[in-house]
C-alpha cells in the first residue's frame, strides 16, 4: 500500500461541474511515489476531466490536489491549505496553479488522448521545446543566445544530447530530422511520451497511451513505461482502456464510474471487485461471462 504510506499526489474531494453535469464527483485518491497508477473506467466516467484538473487545464469546482516530488506531508498540506499560497517550494497545491506553472514548478507532465505533437516541426525540435526551461535560462532573454556565447552553446548541446538519448530509447534516432507529423502513429505516441519526459517530470500523466496501438506496440509501450518507473525518478499516472497493459504494469488501480470512485486497490483486488465488474459489464448477474471477460482481459 505504497500509495498510502508515501504518496506523490493526493487528491481530496475533487469535484468538477460543467453547468448541470457533474463530471467528477467528490473523488479522493492517492498515487504512490515510484508507482504506476492506473485510472480506469467506462467511457464518460470523468477520467480525462480529472486529468485536466490535475494538470491545470480546468479549474476544479471544489477539492484539493496536493503534490510533492520530495515528500508529501499531511501537516504541511494543511498549513498550505489555510494560507493563500500556491506552494511552499516543496509541496504544491495544484488547483491553485496555472498549467505552465504546474509543469515547471511542481514537475508534472502530461500527454493527450489525441496526440498533440508539433506536427510540422521535427522530432528533435519537439524534444527541444520540451526543454525550454533550461534553454531559456541559458539563452538569457535571447540576448546571450543571439550573441552565441559559449554558455549558451553548452546548454544547447546538453539539451540535444538529452533529446538524442530519448530518441535513441524510443528507436527514432534515424528520423530525428523528419517532421513529427510524418511519423507512423505508434512512433508519434512514443515521441509524445519522450517529449513529456524531456520536461524532467516527477509525475508523468498519460492519457490513453496505448490507444490505437497493435499488440506488439502496446507490449513495447508497457516495457517503456516500466523502464521509466524503474529508473526511480518518475512516477506514472495513466488512463488506459487496454486491460492487458493496465494489469501487466500497474501497481495500483483506481476505478471511476459516472464521476465517482468505485474501487481503489491493487490490480488483483480491483479485478475481483463486484462494483467494477458491474460498471464494465452491466449489473445483470451473468457471473460466468463476467469472470471470463475480465480475466481474459487481465490475464494476457
Amino acid at each position: 500500500m505504497n500509495w498510502l504510506d508515501d504518496p506523490i499526489l493526493r487528491v481530496d474531494h475533487l469535484t468538477m461541474r460543467f453547468g448541470g453535469l457533474l463530471a467528477v464527483n467528490d473523488v479522493s485518491f492517492a498515487a504512490g511515489r515510484g508507482d504506476i497508477t492506473a485510472l480506469i473506467g467506462p467511457n464518460g466516467a470523468g477520467k480525462t476531466t480529472l486529468f485536466n484538473c490535475l494538470t491545470g487545464f480546468y479549474q476544479p469546482t471544489a477539492g484539493r490536489i496536493a503534490f510533492s516530488s520530495e515528500k508529501l506531508d499531511a501537516e504541511k498540506i494543511e498549513t498550505l491549505t489555510r494560507s493563500a499560497r500556491k506552494h511552499d517550494g516543496e509541496t504544491f497545491l495544484l488547483e491553485r496553479m496555472a498549467d505552465h506553472e504546474i509543469v515547471r514548478k511542481a514537475r508534472l507532465a502530461r500527454t493527450f488522448q489525441n496526440i498533440r505533437l508539433f506536427q510540422g516541426m521535427s522530432a528533435l525540435e519537439n524534444l527541444m521545446i520540451a526543454q525550454d526551461e533550461a534553454l531559456s535560462r541559458a539563452a538569457g532573454l535571447s540576448f546571450i543566445g543571439l550573441l552565441g556565447l559559449p554558455s549558451w552553446r553548452r546548454a544547447e548541446q546538453a539539451a540535444v544530447d538529452r533529446a538524442v538519448a530519448w530518441l535513441d530509447r524510443i528507436g527514432l534516432k534515424k528520423r530525428a530530422d523528419d517532421p513529427a507529423g510524418s511519423l507512423p502513429y505508434g512512433d508519434q505516441r512514443r515521441l509524445e511520451i519522450a517529449r513529456a519526459m524531456c520536461t524532467k517530470p516527477a509525475l508523468l500523466c498519460l492519457d490513453e497511451p496505448a490507444a490505437g496501438l497493435n499488440a506488439a506496440e502496446s507490449h513495447g509501450l508497457a516495457e517503456l513505461l516500466r523502464g521509466i518507473r524503474d529508473q526511480g525518478e518518475t512516477s506514472i499516472l495513466l488512463i488506459e482502456h487496454d486491460m492487458s497493459v493496465v494489469m501487466r504494469i500497474s501497481d495500483h488501480v483506481v476505478v471511476l464510474d459516472y464521476g465517482q470512485k468505485i474501487a481503489d486497490g491493487s490490480p488483483r483486488e480491483v479485478r475481483e471487485d463486484p462494483a467494477v465488474i458491474a460498471a464494465y459489464l452491466g449489473v445483470e448477474e451473468q457471473e460466468e461471462a463476467v469472470e471470463e471477460a475480465v480475466l481474459s482481459g487481465g490475464g494476457a
Binding site: V103, A109, R116, F118
Partner: peptide, 12 residues
C-alpha cells in the same frame, strides 16, 4: 503548431 501542447510543456 499547437497552443494546448505548449501549455502542457510548461511554456507560458
Amino acid at each position: 503548431e499547437d497552443e494546448i501542447a505548449c501549455r502542457a510543456l510548461g511554456l507560458d
